[in-house]
Lab assay of single mutants.
Amino acid sequence: SEIVVAMYDFQATEAHDLRLERGQEYIILEKNDLHWWRARDKYGSEGYIPSNYVTGKK
């Protein structure tokens, strides 16, 4: 599975969105859409994140 790191904070506005915290790692579950990826955080929460807010883990 692909691990990404959040470059920016993202506040979830929709129920299906996942909040991003800058510097935290997330697991990508689905990339069915170019701009919104389904991800899981370290607490096990899942939701959609803006793909341009994250970068591949170095």
Rank of each mutant, 00 (worst) to 15 (best):
Ser1Ile: 15
Ser1Ala: 14
Glu2Tyr: 12
Ile3Val: 14
Val4Gly: 04
Val4Pro: 00
Val5Ile: 13
Val5Asn: 03
Val5Glu: 05
Ala6Lys: 00
Ala6Arg: 01
Ala6Phe: 03
Met7Arg: 09
Met7Asp: 06
Met7Thr: 08
Met7Glu: 06
Tyr8Ile: 08
Tyr8Gln: 08
Asp9His: 07
Phe10Leu: 08
Phe10Ser: 03
Gln11His: 14
Ala12Arg: 06
Ala12Met: 06
Thr13Met: 12
Thr13Leu: 13
Ala15Glu: 14
Ala15His: 11
Ala15Cys: 13
Ala15Leu: 12
His16Met: 10
His16Gln: 12
Asp17Cys: 15
Leu18Ser: 01
Leu18Glu: 00
Arg19Pro: 14
Arg19Glu: 10
Leu20Ala: 00
Glu21Gly: 02
Glu21Leu: 07
Arg22His: 07
Arg22Asn: 05
Arg22Val: 12
Arg22Met: 12
Gln24Ala: 10
Gln24Asn: 08
Gln24His: 10
Gln24Cys: 10
Glu25Cys: 11
Glu25Tyr: 11
Tyr26Leu: 03
Tyr26Thr: 01
Ile27Trp: 11
Ile27Ala: 07
Ile28Ser: 02
Ile28Leu: 08
Leu29Lys: 03
Leu29Ser: 02
Leu29Gln: 00
Leu29Thr: 05
Leu29Met: 07
Glu30Pro: 01
Glu30Cys: 10
Glu30Lys: 05
Glu30Arg: 04
Glu30Leu: 06
Lys31His: 07
Asn32Arg: 12
Asp33Pro: 02
Leu34Phe: 10
Leu34Asn: 13
Leu34Thr: 13
Leu34Met: 12
His35Pro: 05
Trp36Tyr: 09
Trp37Val: 00
Trp37Met: 04
Arg38Val: 11
Ala39His: 03
Ala39Asn: 01
Arg40Cys: 08
Arg40Lys: 10
Arg40Asp: 02
Asp41Trp: 02
Asp41Asn: 07
Asp41Cys: 03
Lys42Cys: 08
Lys42Val: 09
Lys42Ile: 09
Tyr43Asn: 11
Tyr43Thr: 09
Tyr43Val: 05
Gly44Phe: 03
Gly44Ala: 04
Ser45Pro: 01
Ser45Gln: 14
Glu46Cys: 06
Gly47Leu: 02
Gly47Ile: 03
Tyr48Gln: 07
Ile49Arg: 01
Ile49Gln: 01
Pro50Phe: 05
Pro50Asn: 07
Ser51Ala: 13
Ser51Trp: 05
Ser51His: 07
Asn52Pro: 06
Asn52Cys: 15
Tyr53Gln: 06
Tyr53Ser: 08
Val54Ser: 02
Val54Gly: 00
Thr55Leu: 09
Gly56Asn: 13
Gly56Lys: 12
Lys57Leu: 14
Lys57Ala: 10
Lys57Arg: 10
Lys57Pro: 10
Lys58Cys: 15
Lys58Tyr: 15
